[in-house]
Design a protein around this nucleic acid. Sequence first.
DNA 1: AAAGCGGGGTC
DNA 2: GACCCAGCTTT
Length: 345
Amino acid sequence: MSFSRIILQWYGVHKRPLPWRKTREPYLIWLSEIMLQQTRVAQGIPYYLTFVKAFPTVEDLAAAKEDEVLKLWQGLGYYSRARNLHATAKFIAAEYSGVFPDTYKELVKLKGIGDYTASAMASICFDKPEAVVDGNVFRVLARYFGVDLPINSSEGIAFFKELAIKVMDVSNIRDYNQGLMEFGALQCTPKNPDCIGCPLNVGCVALARDAVSILPVKIKKNKIRKRYFNYLVLVDENNSTLLQQRKGPGIWRNLYEFPLLETESEIEVKEVVKNLSDVIALEEPSEVYLYNEKQLVHKLSHQHLHTRFWIVLAENKLKNGIKITDLHKYPVPVLIADFIEAFKI
DNA sequence: AAAGCGGGGTC
DNA sequence: GACCCAGCTTT
């Protein structure tokens, strides 16, 4: 039996009943695909359900404020996905009367939709013969066909895409594509795959060469940048504080945070007081003290944020102050959300 | 071609 | 601690 036949047959038995598998409506498939980029299915499910409930149609999403979208996205990470999602929803509603295009070529032009997502939507929603290549597919193909080209090199990406097109089954492309990814997620797992019980073990090149554990090959290049964040948590007599929206490029764009003093290294309270006026306009603080004695390290995949929260008691009432009890309404990074959760004055 | 972009699960 | 996850965009 062929590679694709075995995948289809396996999928028929092991298909999980995921929420987005009850439909082929482009809006819902799109939503699920964007959320699942670099994200495990289990982590994405609750967000998907929340979004479908809050925004049943693309017009509903288009009509929302970006802050609302980011708030519901909070905790899922890679927030450019949420910003692009919102921008594309507005574009589809305004320019396409709320109807998604049905070809790879048109889909891939949309913000936040790249090769993978355009292929997934075209095949799943419209039965178009497009091959998907996600992390699962890279792994399955690399092992079964014994390909050791790095999956994160230009050459590797092009090779695997071509290979995926060669072996796809266009007679049932929806199930084939989803089946191949499901197979990677459940059977051909990154660590300790069950090769004994694998329906593809006979033809698997990696298994024959005892190379399962070294495939796929990936060039690693993780340089982790250390940063030192000092958040200034102002508190006035009304129990109000200040938040700022992060602007420009970099992490957490358009999310909110406390006024930030970033430094080259860990600093003392004296230095915080000295630099206070650079970050916030304040008549005169009555007291500045450290909230977390032990600096906490918030780990992103490419940055370690050594973070301290400083409580700054304000002498006068803050202008544009936000009630501490209202902080939970703003979209914030998990780092800030955890602080807000724990903060008791 | 390479870097930047989150947060969480798994081993 | 290392690796990975239904990747995309910018440089």
